[in-house]
Design a binder for these strands. Structure first.
Length: 481
RNA sequence: GGUGCUGUAGACAAAAUGGUAAAGUCACCUGCCUUUCACGUAGGGGUUUGCGGGUUCGAGUCCCGUCAGCACUGCCA
């Protein structure tokens, strides 16, 4: 039997981290068993679904490297299949028309709550007489279709993550709606639980791997599988991703769409790596940096955790930095350009690639996210400098002025400056002024970059020199002393 | 209210059939490197396994009770 799994997001928002993590697990499982990973867009909620979200989901999955083998399939293009299934259930007497209005249902639930009872549908229209039906219809009511769920029925399945799960029919909320009320003909749009089951049957899905917030749906869906005479797949419910407060991560938590992570400068490999760790532990391994392909070799459902996983920015940052630091400057600089441009700097790699690459090589170790490059190189990518109060204060110190003056003198005589030349100049100045080398170094750093901390001084100096900015900056520094 | 799930250091978590001082990673602290920061590197501290009982020579691992957190409870998915 070929393993067939799927990710089935609804296009009612951008690709969410939770959906993406579920996609990762499904992808990993498919790859591990040499199976198929299918993408299905669940757009039956036409009011909330939008095509741009579908695009966002597709591009997000592709960006993460979660390529799908089949699809995308769209539920809105499969309406006939759902109608057929609904008709079958109706014909078999397993489903019926319910004429309750939303208001009636609300009221019913209110009353139940007031009495301390669990809110549920009381199956009141399950056995309507023909006359009653006609009367309700005469009122102009449009029926929904409900699927019968017997209270005393118990649903049992062997969950690949949680083990044996037992669910009582009576705890499922009464007969469930599987199709909305239609404004005209037979029945309206099919609802999630029905559509999912029909699709999973048609697409031969063998393993349904999804978040644990779907557990109750699974019980309902198993009943539908049975009613439709189909084989029930294996279910696996993965733990939820939690925010800092321990609640299910939601849009309310700010950065939760894959798009956001991308913009912040996380690498897809790093994000995927981290998501893999959220709820799964590789067997006998202490190494936590790995590619999706490597994870796929070891991935299986039996090592998926049951407890929810808190999302930890610090760990994601660390993983991202590991990937960043491993990259070559040639590759990295390409990824960095958009961030510089976004910050308003002009970058032309065609004409000035060497310089930008050198700059990249110098600051790479201090980057955690791509966007950090703006802050890290701010002092080097423009001709002008701003001097921090700390730097100005330092430069007021005795001896700094002389150091800077001498350095200006030295570079005025040089055309090309190499690392060795820079070091020589520093040495000469140190000697001739009889000061400590540290003073010279710090004077230069302050005068050249306007700050007391930053990347390698000599390298920074060379880069500035290549742009012809070093002398001007030092002169400006002098004017502040 | 009901149903279900979960509970090992700040975070992620590992610990066949119960058996030595409860892995590892991140974070944190310290030294080294860099006459800066970061990176890197070498170390270090922290949990007695939600809590309370019980079984046992011995329990994170079994039993009972208790508390807490979360999820679900839609003509959303």
């Amino acid at each position: 039997m070929t393993v067939r799994v799927r990710i089935a997001p609804s296009p009612t928002g951008n690709l969410h981290i939770g959906t993406a993590r579920t996609a990762v697990f499904n992808w990993l499982y498919a790859r591990h068993y040499n199976g198929k990973f299918i993408l299905r867009i669940e757009d039956t909620d036409e009011a909330r679904s939008r095509p741009e979200y579908t695009e966002n989901i597709k591009s997000g999955l592709a960006w993460l490297g979660l390529t799908w083998d089949e699809g995308p399939f769209f539920q809105t293009q499969r309406l006939d299949q759902y109608q057929q299934a609904i008709q079958t259930l109706l014909d078999r007497g397993l489903a019926y028309l319910c004429y309750c209005t939303p208001e009636e249902l609300d009221q019913m639930r209110e009353e139940q709550k007031a009495k301390g009872l669990a809110p549920r549908y009381d199956n009141r229209h399950r056995n309507l007489t023909a006359e009653a039906k006609a009367a309700l219809e005469a009122e102009g009511r449009k029926p929904v279709i409900r699927f019968k769920i017997d209270d005393d029925r118990s649903v049992v399945w062997q969950d690949a993550v949680r083990g044996r799960v037992v669910w009582q029919g009576g705890d499922l909320g009464g007969d469930m709606v599987i199709a909305r009320a239609g404004d005209t003909s037979a029945f309206g749009q099919p609802l999630y639980n029905l559509a999912v089951v029909v699709d999973d049957i048609d697409m031969d899905i063998t393993h349904v791997i999804r978040g644990e917030d779907h557990i109750a749906n699974t019980a309902k869906q198993i009943l539908l599988y049975e009613a439709l005479g189909a084989k029930v797949p294996v279910f696996a419910h993965t733990p939820l991703i939690l925010n800092q407060e321990g609640r299910k991560l939601s849009k309310r938590d700010g950065v939760t769409s894959i798009n956001d992570f991308r913009k912040l400068g996380f690498l897809p490999e790093a994000l995927a790596n981290y998501m893999t760790l959220l709820g799964w532990t590789p067997p006998d391994s202490t190494e936590e940096i790995f590619t999706l392909a490597e994870a796929a070799e070891k991935f299986d459902l039996d090592r998926v955790n049951k407890a929810g996983a808190k999302f930890d920015w610090a760990k994601l940052d660390w993983i991202n930095s590991q990937y960043l630091h491993k990259m070559s400057a040639q590759d990295l600089v390409e990824l960095l350009v958009p961030y510089w441009e976004e910050a308003g700097y002009e970058v032309n790699l065609d004409s000035d690639r060497y310089w930008w690459e050198s700059l990249t090589a110098m600051v790479a170790p201090s980057l955690t996210r791509l966007v950090d490059v703006v802050k890290e190189t701010r002092l080097l990518v423009a001709e002008s400098v701003e001097y921090t109060p700390e730097a100005v204060e330092f430069m007021q110190q005795k001896g700094v002025k002389e150091v800077i003056e001498q350095v200006i003198g030295a570079i005025s005589e040089t055309t090309s400056l190499e690392a060795a030349d820079g070091k020589a100049i520093i040495k000469d100045v140190t000697k001739s002024l009889k000061v400590k080398k540290g003073l010279v170094m710090r004077s230069l750093r302050a005068g050249l970059t306007g700050e007391m901390h930053g990347p390698d001084l000599i390298q920074s100096w060379l880069l500035l020199h290549q742009k012809g900015w070093d002398k001007g900056r030092l002169e400006k520094a002098l004017s502040l002393i």
